[in-house]
Simulated scan of single mutants.
Amino acid sequence: MIDLGIEKMLVIGAVALIVIGPEKLPRVARTVGTLLGKAQRYVADVKAEVNRSIELEELKKMKETVETAARDVEAAARDVENSLQATAGDLERSWGGTAAGPALEPAPSYPEYRHPKKKWRLKQGATPSWYKARNGIRTKALSGAARVARYRPHKFN
């Protein structure tokens, strides 16, 4: 870049003061400052764009390496699968069975175990039902309408 020291800046300021004049110098200085700011922002934007493009290229290279590694792994997996199938076929042939495997009898099916006296979904209280029946304890909950219908006095005709 250009090396601007204090002495050079003073010379440029003195020449600008003589050429432009003291009345217009502040306005020109502001305009030059805004133009320099815009130029600096433009240079910063260009640098950022260049950095982004470089990073994008690096990411593309990295993506390509990952894709090639994935293809290599898939190929290796296919090779292993093929060798396992070949080995399985060799074992089947040595056992005398077919490639599909020897015919196996289905496992016998047994009925599901059920406890003879327990109904698992039915909730039972700790008090035996014979005791409740003997002492007149309610064993079933009645709705309001059912209770009214049960205990309503009958009219005699």
Results as ranks from 00 to 15, higher is better:
residue 153 P to A: 14
residue 14 A to Y: 02
residue 39 A to M: 10
residue 102 P to E: 14
residue 102 P to L: 10
residue 22 P to W: 10
residue 131 Y to D: 06
residue 38 K to D: 14
residue 88 A to V: 05
residue 31 T to P: 02
residue 118 K to C: 07
residue 16 A to S: 11
residue 57 E to W: 06
residue 137 I to L: 08
residue 151 Y to I: 00
residue 149 A to H: 00
residue 128 P to M: 09
residue 2 I to S: 05
residue 89 G to V: 05
residue 100 A to E: 15
residue 136 G to N: 06
residue 26 P to Y: 06
residue 135 N to L: 09
residue 25 L to K: 00
residue 7 E to G: 03
residue 114 R to L: 07
residue 65 T to R: 13
residue 149 A to L: 02
residue 115 H to E: 04
residue 113 Y to C: 02
residue 20 I to L: 09
residue 106 P to E: 15
residue 10 L to V: 05
residue 90 D to T: 00
residue 57 E to T: 10
residue 15 V to T: 12
residue 108 P to A: 15
residue 67 E to C: 07
residue 89 G to H: 06
residue 72 D to E: 11
residue 134 R to G: 02
residue 29 A to V: 08
residue 135 N to D: 13
residue 91 L to F: 12
residue 68 T to V: 12
residue 103 A to M: 05
residue 139 T to A: 03
residue 156 F to T: 10
residue 67 E to T: 09
residue 125 G to D: 08
residue 69 A to R: 05
residue 139 T to H: 04
residue 111 P to Q: 00
residue 32 V to K: 07
residue 98 T to W: 03
residue 40 Q to M: 14
residue 49 E to N: 08
residue 112 E to V: 05
residue 149 A to M: 04
residue 116 P to F: 01
residue 112 E to D: 11
residue 40 Q to Y: 14
residue 7 E to V: 03
residue 78 R to S: 05
residue 12 I to D: 07
residue 103 A to S: 10
residue 73 V to H: 05
residue 84 L to H: 04
residue 110 Y to R: 03
residue 121 R to A: 08
residue 65 T to Y: 09
residue 65 T to V: 14
residue 105 E to P: 01
residue 62 M to I: 05
residue 78 R to L: 06
residue 44 A to F: 00
residue 74 E to T: 00
residue 62 M to N: 07
residue 51 N to Q: 12
residue 61 K to F: 10
residue 75 A to P: 01
residue 144 G to R: 07
residue 42 Y to D: 11
residue 65 T to G: 07
residue 15 V to P: 04
residue 56 L to P: 03
residue 84 L to N: 06
residue 52 R to D: 15
residue 107 A to P: 02
residue 143 S to M: 01
residue 11 V to S: 15
residue 3 D to K: 02
residue 72 D to A: 11
residue 80 V to D: 11
residue 58 E to C: 04
residue 91 L to V: 14
residue 90 D to E: 12
residue 70 A to N: 08
residue 26 P to D: 13
residue 85 Q to L: 07
residue 9 M to P: 02
residue 68 T to K: 11
residue 122 L to A: 10
residue 45 D to P: 02
residue 109 S to T: 13
residue 103 A to T: 07
residue 92 E to V: 01
residue 65 T to P: 00
residue 154 H to Q: 13
residue 150 R to A: 15
residue 108 P to E: 14
residue 82 N to G: 12
residue 116 P to D: 03
residue 44 A to C: 06
residue 59 L to E: 13
residue 3 D to Y: 07
residue 122 L to T: 05
residue 52 R to P: 03
residue 77 A to G: 04
residue 39 A to P: 04
residue 37 G to A: 15
residue 29 A to T: 10
residue 12 I to S: 06
residue 136 G to S: 01
residue 23 E to T: 08
residue 149 A to Y: 02
residue 40 Q to R: 14
residue 155 K to Q: 11
residue 152 R to Y: 09
residue 141 A to L: 03
residue 39 A to V: 08
residue 74 E to G: 00
residue 126 A to L: 08
residue 6 I to Q: 12
residue 48 A to S: 13
residue 155 K to F: 10
residue 127 T to E: 15
residue 71 R to S: 15
residue 17 L to N: 13
residue 95 W to K: 01
residue 122 L to D: 05
residue 57 E to V: 07
residue 13 G to P: 05
residue 146 A to S: 12
residue 2 I to D: 06
residue 17 L to M: 12
residue 151 Y to R: 04
residue 128 P to Q: 12
residue 16 A to N: 00
residue 1 M to F: 01
residue 66 V to D: 12
residue 53 S to Q: 15
residue 10 L to I: 04
